[in-house]
């Protein structure tokens, strides 16, 4: 049965566990993370810094940095079993079937090579194109991402371009081989709002044009609301709530998701409303609390929350949470129905 599912899905991560073995101790960066993604779908992963959103995406690309180690679970991507692949095999699909855009366009381009050089590199590596064909393709790509005078730009170095332009170049590099999946790791966090709007618009346009799936990693709920069909909310290395954009924004079930939505200031209110913050500080990943990691900050925390990790509560095919409160409600609801 599992086989059948794998045929359908583009990405199928099951119960991934990943730890970083630091001198100070083991940091359990990912605990039982499961993600599924269809072709052409946009998944948003939101969470605070250190919640494991980037680690999840990086591990799918086989980019887990030392001292990180995959401890369990299966990672399926487009017919490949990522966890069993060697570095050599990984290189063949990285940049080809799966690509990534990093947060900071200032540091992720190589300052000593021209833009053209860096785009061609990907093309020459993954296709049989000749040097001049690669240059043609690079020009096409720059046009595709909305950079004018591509001929001139190809000969320029990254420092000659603005932040928004560099991020466009990054996208061009990522799209060079028309990947099935694009991972965008906070692609607009370092950019200004008006430039952010340009880049997001461009990404959506390209998604429709090329039919790729996108995993969008961000801490900005506004960005996911605008772009994503499905959203995974992460906290302390776990997906605490997963659902469609409507599920998450209109029917949030987990207290952390509710808190996040409450704590963002809105632009369209006249009366001055006080923000409702989530109290406390993010978890110390070296010494995570015993039960639910969010329990110390949760204002509806129960006794059991401090002792055991809650199981998954499923609301629909696409919506689930990990919260004792939801478990309790469901059991009470179930009892009432009987």
């Amino acid at each position: 049965m599992a086989e059948e599912q794998n045929v359908r899905k583009l990405v199928d991560i099951k119960n991934e566990r990943l730890s970083f073995f630091t001198p100070a101790g083991e940091v359990k960066a990912l605990n039982d993370v499961s993600i599924m993604l269809d072709e052409g779908e946009v998944l948003g992963i939101v969470g605070e810094s250190g919640s494991g959103k980037s680690v999840t995406a990086y591990s799918l690309m086989g980019l887990t940095a030392h001292p990180g180690k995959l401890l369990g679970g299966t990672l399926w991507f487009n017919g490949h079993e990522i966890e069993a692949m060697t570095e050599k095999e990984m290189r063949k699909i990285r940049g080809n079937e799966i690509s990534i855009i990093f947060q900071d366009p200032m540091t992720s381009l190589n300052p000593v090579y021209t833009i053209g050089n860096q785009i061609e590199e990907v093309i020459l590596l993954h296709t049989d194109k000749k040097k001049n064909e690669a240059r043609e393709r690079a020009k096409e790509l720059l046009e595709l991402v909305g950079i004018n005078e591509p001929e001139k730009r190809l000969k320029q170095y990254p420092h000659e371009l603005s932040g928004g332009m560099r991020q466009r170049v990054m996208i061009a590099i990522a799209l060079a081989c028309e990947p099935k999946l694009l991972i965008a790791d906070e692609p607009t966090t370092a950019l200004d709002v008006t430039i952010q709007a340009q880049i997001l618009e461009l990404m959506m346009e390209l998604k429709d044009k090329l039919g790729m799936a996108i995993i969008m990693i961000t801490h900005d709920l506004g960005v996911v609301a605008n772009m994503c069909q499905k959203i995974a909310v992460m906290y302390a290395g776990r997906i605490v709530e997963y659902g469609t954009a409507d599920d998450i924004f209109y029917h949030p079930k987990h207290e952390y998701t509710k808190g996040l939505i409450r704590s963002i200031p809105r632009l369209d209110t006249k009366e001055h409303e006080r923000l409702v913050p989530i109290e406390g500080t993010p978890v110390d990943m070296l010494n995570p609390p015993k039960g639910c990691p969010f329990a110390p900050r949760c204002d509806k925390c129960m006794k059991i929350c401090l002792k055991e990790m809650p199981p998954v509560t499923t609301f629909s095919d696409t919506h689930y949470t990990q919260c004792w409160l939801n478990q309790k409600e469901e059991m009470e609801g179930g009892a009432a129905n009987e």
Binding site: V193, T194, Q196, A197, V223, A225, N226, A245, D246, Y250
Partner: peptide, 21 residues
Amino acid sequence: LISAIPIADPKVARESKRIVL
């Protein structure tokens, strides 16, 4: 500037037309 801010509300976001500079 106002229209460029991503609104944390999927329905509003789907309907609104952005002015992209």
